[in-house]
């Protein structure tokens, strides 16, 4: 069974992977398909399809409702302009009471994203609230593209450059965008 969001939005996975997936997926469905987290994620998916945030899209990767892929298009007027950045979103089983794990899959030169793609964004850690949705998380991602948070850095090296030599920082970021995100 395919989830509606996962099929069209992203490039389809090889069929062999699906075959491998379906075995585990069926057992997974039997256990938690009626759970509150599953319901909530389904609702969020529906809402995202109806009203997606600007420059963003997201949906389940395959059969698993708890594993999503999101894309953010680099906003205009930033060094990330025109780049397409992929993110992995993994929902915990007690979502929305615990934050989803968001990881950049595309390399990016940004002071809030470390080399492994992990984010240093407060709302995904201690300031997470169950009233936040993936839509809001994506909006937050987009806002750190527009305005990095140098005082809560993941990579202090980039932060230092960002604060001391903004032009150089932007140049490097643009180069990285061209290299990895296009």
């Amino acid at each position: 069974m395919m989830t509606p969001g996962g099929s069209g939005r992203f490039r389809p996975l090889p069929t062999a992977m699906y075959a491998g997936y379906s075995g585990t997926a069926s057992s997974w469905v039997a256990k938690t398909s009626v759970s509150a987290s599953g319901k909530r994620i389904q609702r969020e998916m529906a809402e995202l399809n109806v009203d997606p945030p600007t420059d963003c899209s997201a949906g389940p990767k395959g059969d698993n409702l708890y594993h999503w892929i999101a894309t953010i298009i680099g906003p205009l007027g930033t060094p990330y302009e025109g780049g397409i950045f992929f993110l992995d979103i993994i929902f915990p089983s007690d979502y929305p009471f615990k934050p989803p794990k968001v990881v950049f899959k595309t390399r990016i030169y940004h002071c809030n994203v470390d080399t492994a793609g992990n984010l240093s964004v407060e709302i995904l850690r201690d300031s997470w609230s169950p009233a936040l949705t993936i839509t809001k998380v994506l909006q937050a991602m987009r806002s750190i593209f527009l305005k990095p948070e140098p005082y809560n850095p993941a990579l202090p090296v980039i932060t230092r450059l960002y604060l001391s030599d903004r032009e150089k920082h932007d140049e490097v970021a643009k180069e990285w965008t061209l290299r990895f995100a296009k």
């Binding site: 009471f97 615990k98 997470w128 609230s129 169950p130 009233a131």
Partner: peptide, 18 residues
């Protein structure tokens, strides 16, 4: 129910305004 589990798992803060 939601509020109760939010208070249990995320601390006694309002999910909307903290």
């Amino acid at each position: 129910k939601c509020l109760r589990s939010a208070a249990d798992k995320c601390g006694r803060k309002c999910p909307k305004c903290r």
